[in-house]
Design a protein around this nucleic acid. Structure first.
Lengths: 149, 149
DNA sequence: TCAATCTTAATGCAGTTGCATTAAAAACAG
DNA sequence: CTGTTTTTAATGCAACTGCATTAAGATTGA
């Protein structure tokens, strides 16, 4: 047997299992709502929202990757699809021909808005109904520890 | 604008964002460890572990689905691949020709064990190092609320 | 300067997932 | 019984993801 230090504690293993399960459960429920309302997936939403928040509705692909934690090649092709749907457009990055700026279109902003209508309601149903704001704050603080380093 | 009740609170939205991000971050780190040790993905591990825990190392596909929250068609094909690798075998379900039992093989048990060596160490590094047992317990309790209903 | 290195984004191909449907068997209802 | 409905698992096809590589442009350093 390979050595790898002490076994993780039961408490840690349980928390890890629940993290996976909670994420799958809630994402599954929310995706189902979006789909049944005829909308694309959360990944599309994530990109649209980040762009909308960015300066002039523009970000580089790298910035989007960093924000949403997608792989470079996945984002590249997702942007292809979104560009085909007229939700974003690629524009040259001034002073660096390698880079580009992704700009959200009016159509993209409109879609983000319409999706939020369904998404926000789903968050209410699947999260707000289960946690008080105080509990949500505690959860945020604990999850932050996992993200950090 | 479509009506959908009040906006989710900032605390809830933040918790939701962190849940997604924490899951992606930790899964990404753990998958990278498994991959660099030459092992298959966490999904394979999940199935192997559930089977190993099941009575006589056997479960129906439905039971596995329920335990790991995979889609029926995804599990069906994952089991094809695992069967091809000799990790599980399909056996008839006594008294119901629609159903089947999936049984973990000795090879499957051995793989689960070897993967745990890497997986457990990764959990130590990416979770135990970030949370005390007490915090892990709090996190579990909060996530349970999200899963329930 | 200019070759070596690094950064950014795209792409071919294989593997995986999602969606819709199918097929087979069991359970149910009249 | 027998036709209908439900349950279980598989599959064709399209969409998406992972991996490795490529190509182009910027940066670095002798």
């Amino acid at each position: 047997m390979q050595e790898h230090g002490p076994e993780p504690s039961a408490a840690v293993i349980r928390a890890w299992g629940r993290l996976i399960r909670a994420e799958r459960t809630v994402v599954g429920r929310i995706e189902a709502e979006l789909k049944s309302a005829g909308f694309p997936s959360l990944h599309w939403y994530d990109v649209l929202l980040e762009l909308k928040r960015g300066p002039e509705g523009r970000l580089t692909p790298r910035e989007i990757e960093e924000a949403v934690l997608f792989e470079q090649y996945n984002l590249s092709r997702l942007l292809d699809r979104m560009e085909n749907e007229g939700l974003v457009r690629r524009i040259p990055f001034p002073g660096d021909k390698r880079r580009q700026l992704i700009e959200i279109t009016e159509e993209g902003k409109a879609l983000q808005w319409r999706m939020w209508s369904v998404y926000g309601a789903a968050i209410n149903r699947f999260i707000s109904a289960k946690l008080t704001d105080k509990e949500a704050g505690q959860l945020s603080a604990l999850l932050l520890k996992l993200i950090q380093e």
